[in-house]
Each structure stands twice: as C-alpha cells, then as structure tokens.
Amino acid sequence: MKKLLYIFIFFGLTSCNDGDIIVTSFEFEDVDLQLCQGAKPNEFVFFKINTSVNEAISYNFIDATYSATTITENPIIIDLETPDNGLIYRKFNNTITADYYCNNIPDSSIIVTEELLSISGQATIINEIVSEDDNDGVESTLEAPSEIDPEDDPDGDGVPNYLDDAMADSTIGNDDQTADNLGIEDGYDTDGDQIPDFRDQDDDNDNVLTSVELPNSDPNDDSFLDTDEDGIPNYRDDDDDGDGILTKDEDINGNGNPRDDDTDGDGIANFLDTDDAISVTAESILSNTVITTFRTTLTVSDLILNEVNDQFTNDDFSFGFRDETVSITTPIN
C-alpha cells in the first residue's frame, strides 16, 4: 500500500475567500530518496522530488557522525526545531532536478509557489549494511553449508545465519563471540581467517583468488575445478595439487602470486604440478575486496508544520531509504 503524506491547509481571506481546504499529497513510496552534501561542514540534505506535480520534500541536518558508508552503531536522533535541522515541503512553478538541492546556487528560474516548514518533530537516521559479496563468481548460498543464505535471519533475532548459534531460536544469537573471534558458525569460513566465505575473495587463503580457481576446462563438466581430485574444489583446497606443499608456499619468487611460478618449466604452475619439490614460507596474503551495500533509512515522528498544526494527519511516517554500494578493500597483511 502506498504511503501518502497528506497536508491540509486552511487559507485565510487573502488566499481563498470561501475557506476551502486545499489538499496536497506527496507519494513517498514511488519516489527515490536522494542525498547531497550541504554547504556547511557535516551538513547533509535528503530529498524526494515528485516531478509529476512539481513538488518536493527535503530534510537537511548537520551531524558529524553520519556517513552514507558507515554503520550507525546507534540511531541518530535529531530534533526538527532548529534552522540547521529541518524538514521543508515545497511546490514549484516548474520541474526541478537534484541540482536544486545539490548546487549551492539554485536555478533562478525556479520559483517556490508553496512552502511548509517543520517547527517540531524528530528525525531518526539509521545506516546499516544490507548486503555484502566478494564478487568471486560463487553465489553466497553456495559458500555456506546446506546452501543456506548466510545473511538471512529466519528467527528475527537480528543475527545473520553465519553468526547465529541457533538459526531457529530467537532467544539465542551469537553467544560464542569473543574479543578475538567473531563467532562465525562452522562451514561458513573455510580458511578460518575470520572472513566468511561469501565475503572472502580467497576462501582457502592460498593466495589464489577464488574466481581464478573455479573454471573447469571440460565443457561437459559444470563442477568446480578439483585438480587433485580429492573431493575438495580448488577454491576451498589449500593444497590444490595434493603434493603436501601448501599452494601459498609454492610461490617461489615471493611476490604473493603462486600462479606465476613454474620451477620445472613445463607450463604448469607449481601449485598445480605434483612434479616439483621446492617450497618457501609465504609471508603475505592477498588483499580482500568486498562489494558492500549500505542502506540509510530516515523516519520522522511527531511532525508539526508551521501552517497546518493539527490539520496534519500523518505526523509519523517513513521518509524512505537510500542504498549506496561501495567496494571496501582490506590491505595485504
């Protein structure tokens, strides 16, 4: 069901002699929430534009803790009673674009024909991660036991499956987490590096990216590559050729990439060749990049506008949400 913001305005004799109620509506659900950096330090502007009727609603605020790509440990709660933290509804003489809010100097041809300002209320801002993926070519469900979605939360306890000690019991969460251990459940972290496989570009920590270890050269075989045929696909096998030497220790030139080392010159890299007998001790691991989507949700409660007072019928509403996807890389150790 669409959520509508209804604003009822009583106009005086100068505006409307018969005292009719003019109803303006803004459709929140069908319009994208957008964000711009404000002109002042730590100032942000959330806004929605309804181009079909040339109206928009915006919320500007100043807060040093907010970032579109940082989790809010606690909700950011801001009163709507100051000029720097306010909600504004406007109608225009013409269609506007995001530039109206994102440029310091708006287009002079745009005229505000109607404006309502918040004089009281409270805004709540929450920013959380809604999805993460290592983009390694393996579906996240295939990187989990029994093809369970690692990020799902079926018991609604706020703990995703890969951390939940009891996925079907909302009274039990990630109770085995410690200062040194995230408490990742069995089967979700092949190499035990505290990065769950669905976020790990190198699931077996052998310094060969998972995406590189997947392809099988047999067009009639759609299974993942398993060079030593030990039942463990290469992307989860830290000794891909089964020669007793860890793949990462077959990086003879020490550049962090076992793929370019071929001691006997037979065209087969050492880590896939059982006919080599040279090993070193790896001192580094690959950096890890995760494609992360953050979601900012903005809600407004107890809203009072300057001209409508108790005629405003929907004083608690969701302003909507906005997603931002970024690549986050953890450097080489």
Rank of each mutant, 00 (worst) to 15 (best):
T97A: 05
E73P: 01
K91R: 10
F61L: 10
K48R: 13
T330W: 06
V112Y: 05
T70W: 01
I7E: 06
D32S: 14
G19W: 11
V138S: 00
Y162F: 12
I88W: 07
D175E: 14
I77S: 13
L246R: 00
I304F: 14
Q177K: 15
I111Y: 14
L5I: 15
D200C: 02
P160Y: 04
T297M: 09
F319H: 11
D222M: 14
T69L: 04
I285T: 13
Y59S: 09
G244C: 03
E307T: 12
N288V: 01
T171W: 09
I172G: 06
E143Q: 03
T70A: 11
D186H: 10
P215Y: 13
F46M: 05
D165A: 08
T297G: 06
S52H: 12
F198Y: 09
L272R: 08
A123W: 05
N85W: 13
F46S: 04
Q37M: 13
N288D: 05
T227E: 02
I62D: 09
V326M: 02
Q37V: 15
D169C: 08
V159F: 04
P219T: 07
E81A: 13
R322F: 11
D315M: 10
G320A: 10
G38Y: 07
M1C: 15
L33E: 08
T210P: 01
Y101D: 07
E307H: 12
I278M: 05
S25Q: 15
R295V: 12
F319D: 12
T82K: 15
E213L: 06
